[in-house]
Amino acid sequence: MSERSAPDPDHSTELEELARDLVRIPTENPPGDEGAAAEFVSDWFREAGIDATLLEEPDPNRPQVGARVGEGGPTVVLNGHLDVVPAGAPEAWTADPYAGVVEDGRLYGRGSADMKTGVALAMLVARDLAPEIRAGELSGSVVVHAAMGEETADPGTRTLLERGFDGDYGIVLEPTDFRVATSTKGLSVYRIAVEGVATHASQPDAGTNAIDETRPLLDAIDEYDAELREREGSLCGGAFATVTEIEAGTGSNLAVIPDRAELVLDRRVLPGEDPEEVDAEVEALLDRVRAERGVETTWTRIQTYASSSIPVDHPLATSLRDRSVAAVGPDGGVGEPWGIEAATDARNFVNDAEVPAVTWGPGDLDQAHTVDESIDLADAAIAREVLEDVVRSLIE
């Protein structure tokens, strides 16, 4: 990418310290330990003189934060989530995943890219615009979400929107390397059970090995995935069907042929696709395997992230895209219409609250959920200036 403008040094230091403080608070989900981070964010806002609510919905054991500056309109909502995926074995990391190490201009740690730096950006921009809003120089207002449960499709953001922390525009501050995503891909996750007949492993022909019964199902899923890849894609790319987990024979004697196997199917859903229509495709796939190979199955959809989309030329997207190009240059697709392959809480804005929203932020999505996750702090500082300018232009 072309050379990027130099951020304000004082702003850079302040952002680094706040993002580092957030990374140092473990908030792994599962199980969902957002509480300490939510209290930190709430206290920070109160010390800054900003009204903040520690919301105990949808889960009283997992509070989240909604904050508001101003009462007028239009209102821009800056959305971030507090939860992070588990870091895994600490020894796999170069440094403690919750130490918040800064080295060579990068902040390392679980959540540094996905997305505690984004939460820090939202907090600082709201605070910095507060004097202009209170003085009446800006007629609109700013809302900040520090949401729970994004990583496991819990209704954190949706609940914040329902409880009045909504607005006219939404910016979900996930790492996109300054690209503006007007579309997000969704997913439907299925648990499929394959039935067999248990018997002693010394007499395997006396039963039906559920593991063997999964073979034609796996072949059918491969065919389904190939067919999906042939369909017309979207700004988010194509649809996929992928098996992410298989379990059979656990918790039993090692000499027993298992009578049940379970697998998890991850089906990526494009904007315009209905989850119920995807359900019907999965049901048809299983019916075909049952009819052709006699494999008995049952299924349940266990997780759903809806896709979302707004027009690529929506004023919110155009403003953020133009300001990003001015700050970092047009390379890397920053100036082009784009959709993000991952699911984000933009879906709650667009689908549930009918609020136009985009996904945008500094950092590389490839860093999310990885060992030695990190973010370039210089890019984060540039993003702070871009975000402040865009929000100001939307609420003036």
Rank of each mutant, 00 (worst) to 15 (best):
R127E: 15
T157F: 01
E276P: 00
V371M: 11
P131L: 12
A226F: 06
L173R: 11
A19H: 09
R347C: 04
A67T: 02
L263E: 04
T176S: 14
G49I: 09
T370P: 00
A248Q: 12
L54D: 05
H145I: 05
M115D: 09
G167F: 08
A193Q: 13
V386I: 15
T344K: 04
T184W: 05
T300W: 00
N348W: 13
R4C: 08
I302T: 15
W360L: 05
F45Q: 07
D313W: 03
E195S: 14
G164H: 07
I50N: 04
T13E: 15
F178S: 09
A181N: 03
S112I: 09
V325S: 08
G136K: 09
L270H: 13
P60H: 08
T199S: 14
S2L: 13
A346M: 14
S141T: 11
L235R: 13
S2P: 00
S42M: 01
P356C: 06
G72T: 08
S5E: 11
T300R: 15
R134F: 01
D114K: 11
P216N: 11
R347M: 02
P131E: 12
E132K: 15
G233C: 10
G249M: 14
D345L: 05
I211A: 07
G100M: 07
D287V: 08
G207N: 10
P90N: 13
D21E: 14
D219C: 00
D266F: 02
P58R: 07
V172T: 13
D43Y: 00
N29W: 01
I257R: 12
R290W: 09
R24H: 02
T250S: 12
L218G: 02
G72N: 05
G35Y: 09
R191Y: 02
R260F: 01
R301N: 08
D212N: 10
W338N: 07
R392M: 11
D168A: 07
R215C: 00
R46M: 01
L265D: 04
G196K: 06
E151D: 12
R68L: 04
D21H: 00
T242Q: 08
